[in-house]
Amino acid sequence: MRIKTIAAIPLRIPFGDRYGGPRAKRRGWTEFDSLLVRVEADDGTVGWGEAFAYSCLSTVRTAIEEMVAPLATGREVGDIATFSRMLQKELHIWGRYGITIFALSGLDIALWDIAAKQAGKSLAEYLGGRRRHDLPAYASLVRYGGPQPVDAMVRQAVADGYNDVKLHETTYETIAAARLAAGADIRLTADINCGWSLAEAEDMLPRMRALDLYWVEEPVFPPEDYETLQALGRFGVALAAGENACTAMEFARLVPALAFPQPSVIKVGGISEFLAVADLARRAGKPLMPHTPYFGPGYWATLQLAAHLQEIALFEFLYVHPEAFCGRDIPLPDRGHIAIPDAPGIGFTPDDDTLRRCRVA
């Protein structure tokens, strides 16, 4: 394929967090910043990607428009992974990770979408075969900051049919309240978002084990400190990390230290780097738990990867109510499972009304 045009489409979509009871403090996160990447090939095929853009929407947009698009537009693309790696090399002076890789992730996803569409196949089939048609999902709760709302939201998620629930809480009292609300049969996890010091982690991890947490995610800062993560494994609690790691090179260091590597397709470098991470996990015998708290093309691309890769164990579904979805007919969980579409490419078709209403000037 030859790249004809690349466009970045910034969106801001309000959402509700499903909780209507009393709160200790006001909600801090009320809108999704999403950056769609539209790529058109010279034959007219359009591919869609997504670049991570939470709280950095305009910066990532600028990276695509001023760094990535001038390099990639007009180029012939044969092997997508090789092309993406070449772009990484050409842009490395601005940093190997972060904003640069977020921008490249969006382009890479769109290129794979085009290639699969040109072949008349879903991405899963294009990658070598569709191995499953649905996927178990877990309810990923936002941070509520206290036992009362967490109790209510865990009970609601369990009533909706989820067997796995993830918290974004850091205190023992709140996590213990969630365990009591969930009951012994529900797998409960906690994403600490690097919120504990090393001393706090050493104090809390035995208590998390007593609560029978399925995993504890990113307990300390920095999240890529694989030596500390490996050392914390002595407490007998499964550890997960990787949503903030870019490229397979970072995962080569992280995978041995983790029970559950967590690549994010819109942050790691797109589908090309995600496949390389999956290969690392396969050789290490580690299941993947992708980071997917978004609803754009990255959501759809992850589902297609899950249809192809047996290493993916669960799909992270952000347990909120967006006011709109940027893609038409988005497959949502039903009793804790998501049916994976079989449309050409990643399956994403933009909702033009949402793109018009929610586009950021």
Rank of each mutant, 00 (worst) to 15 (best):
M86P: 00
M1Y: 11
V37L: 06
A176D: 03
I186C: 05
V220I: 15
P219V: 11
P331Y: 08
D33Y: 12
G269N: 06
V46I: 15
D33M: 13
Q88V: 07
F260S: 02
E76K: 14
L167P: 00
G20R: 11
Q304S: 07
D191S: 03
K4L: 10
L180D: 10
I9K: 00
R38P: 08
Q262W: 10
K4S: 07
R2P: 10
D42H: 05
I175Y: 01
V46G: 03
R23A: 13
G195E: 03
M208E: 03
G28K: 10
G195C: 09
A284S: 07
G128R: 04
T247M: 10
L167E: 00
Q88S: 09
R207D: 02
L57K: 07
D353R: 08
M249V: 13
M208T: 08
Y319T: 04
A181V: 09
P222L: 13
L135C: 05
K117T: 06
L198V: 15
V142P: 08
L135V: 14
D134R: 14
V68I: 14
Q230C: 06
D17L: 07
G16A: 14
G270S: 08
D329T: 05
S272I: 06
T302D: 04
A252L: 09
T59V: 12
H321K: 11
Y97F: 15
P261M: 13
A69Q: 11
V320W: 04
G95R: 13
I186E: 00
L104H: 06
A240Q: 12
Y126L: 04
T59N: 06
L104E: 01
S55E: 12
E66W: 05
A248Q: 12
E217P: 02
R155V: 02
R209Y: 08
R282W: 14
L57W: 02
E173K: 05
L332E: 10
T171R: 11
L111R: 02
Y214G: 05
R38N: 06
D334K: 14
A324K: 08
G106E: 06
Y294S: 01
E66H: 10
W94K: 15
D352G: 09
G298F: 03
D79Q: 13
G183D: 11
P219E: 06
R234A: 15
K117I: 13
F15V: 04
A307Y: 12
R359S: 09
V320E: 01
I93R: 15
F317S: 03
V154A: 01
A124W: 08
V142M: 10
P297R: 00
G296A: 11
A199Q: 12
L332T: 14
Y144W: 09
P341L: 10
P136R: 14
M249K: 07
W215H: 12
N163V: 07
Y126N: 03
A278D: 03
R130K: 00
T30C: 11
I186K: 02
Y299K: 01
P147N: 06
